[in-house]
Amino acid sequence: MNDSAGTDGNSSYGHKPFKRSRSHFADRVTADGRDGWPVEAGRYRLVASRACPWASRALVSRRLLGLEDALSLAVADPLQDDRSWRFTLDPDGRDPVLGIRYLSEAYDARERDYPGGVSVPAIVDVPSGKLVTNDYQQITLDLATEWTALHRPGAPDLYPEPLRAEIDEVMEGIYRDVNNGVYRAGFADGQDTYEEAYEALFRRLEQMSERLADRRYLVGDTITEADIRFFTTLVRFDAVYHGHFKCNRRKLSEDPVLWAYARDLYQTPGFGDTVDFHHIKQHYYRVHTGINPTGIVPAGPDLSGWLTPHHREQLGGRPFGDGTPPGPVPENEAIPTAHQP
């Protein structure tokens, strides 16, 4: 997510349709270290923003898999300056592990004068201070499949091999029309471009609503990567996308199936306990000055509905498969009470 470019993720917009570019640093941290970055407990630091839906995928995956001790976390300020993501939430405005004030310093350590934006999520090699990867599409898949030796006992299989083809197909549509679709609508530079994205978004949401009417999760009977990727957009929908990005055919809370599905996930350990609504609203409404030049942050919506009963357990399903829920949130990573519903 790179809002120095005006949007989330690696992206560009202006006098042309919104387009999200590929991640420039696509090295992978793998069990065999084939890219030069072997999985190793304590070696890497995940840099994320709780405002960013792309980074939030990594936050959810890390919690569900129990990687908190193996992969440390740096949380960036939801507000940025002209150098992008900064560590002003930490004492003295400096990340206590990496010792840097801006994520861009890790980018510079890897490639001086890199011309692209500074995006999260990012994985940084602690010993060298160099960025390893900002490939938001691959990071969570690797956490699920390459970091297995460091998973907690009872960790769920978020990308089960027999279901990968179906998961990939579902995720591709969600990415194009929902995850990225809200940005295509929000940053459209013309009426036709906006309406095309708007129609594709709500067409896909209706399809997903039909799919989830009689099944608890998107693929199979357990939580998978597909649910994580869908959730991080849904949880932001009423708070920011409905109004800020003009995705206002209906609110999430006006679709009985998707609203219940999203609440089910929110109330599942590993999902809602990573969500900071204050960071989300502050970032979108105060950083996107081209859309909201006054910088006024709406007082609503009422978030208390996220904690109401969803009754999705009646559909069956096993959230963690043969595994177990993650343990308590580490004290230093807990979302402030004032930032929750």
Rank of each mutant, 00 (worst) to 15 (best):
Ile335Pro: 01
Ala200Ser: 12
Gln138Lys: 07
Ala5Trp: 03
Gly220Gln: 09
Gly317Tyr: 05
Trp306Ile: 02
Gly36Leu: 09
Gln80Gly: 09
Pro91Leu: 11
Gly117Phe: 01
Leu258Trp: 03
His311Glu: 14
Arg22Pro: 10
Asp32Lys: 12
Ala51Glu: 02
Ala299Phe: 06
Glu105Arg: 01
Val132Asp: 07
Thr294Arg: 08
Arg112Trp: 08
Asn2Thr: 11
Thr274Met: 13
Arg110Asp: 01
Gln137Trp: 13
Asp32Ser: 11
Gly173Tyr: 05
Leu98Cys: 05
Ser104Ala: 14
Arg164Leu: 12
Gln138Leu: 04
Thr224Val: 08
Tyr102His: 01
Gly117Lys: 00
Glu105Gln: 03
Ala74Lys: 07
Gly317Leu: 04
Arg164Pro: 04
Arg57Val: 12
Ile335Tyr: 02
Ile139Asn: 10
Lys246Pro: 07
Glu206Val: 12
Val97Arg: 15
Glu199Cys: 12
Arg57Asp: 07
Ala55Gln: 02
Glu161Leu: 15
Leu131Phe: 02
Ala51Gly: 09
Ala76Thr: 12
Pro115Ala: 00
Arg312Tyr: 03
Gln340Ser: 13
Ala338Trp: 02
Thr145Pro: 02
Leu59Ser: 10
Asp135Ile: 10
His24Cys: 00
Val219Ala: 09
Asp264Trp: 09
Pro96Gly: 05
Asp95Thr: 09
Ser61Cys: 15
Val47Pro: 05
Trp306Gly: 06
Asp142Thr: 09
Asn332Glu: 15
Val170Glu: 09
Phe231Cys: 05
Glu161Trp: 12
Asp157Ile: 02
Asp8Glu: 11
Ser21Arg: 12
Pro53Cys: 12
Leu64His: 01
Leu131Arg: 00
Val219Tyr: 04
Gly116Arg: 07
Thr232Ile: 10
Thr224Glu: 08
Gly181His: 08
Asn2Pro: 11
Val182Thr: 09
Ala48Phe: 09
Pro156Asp: 04
Pro330Asn: 05
Glu111Lys: 13
Met1Asp: 13
Gly316Gln: 06
Ala226Pro: 03
Ala51Trp: 01
Asp189Phe: 15
Lys281Gly: 00
Leu73Arg: 06
Gly186Asp: 09
Lys281Ala: 08
Asp168Glu: 13
Asn248Tyr: 07
Gly14Trp: 06
Ser49Gly: 15
Pro301Lys: 04
Arg94His: 09
Ala262Cys: 15
Thr88Asn: 08
Arg112Glu: 14
Val97Ser: 14
Thr337Cys: 00
Leu201Ser: 03
Thr294Gln: 07
Trp259Thr: 03
Glu206Tyr: 11
Gln267Asn: 14
Arg45Tyr: 08
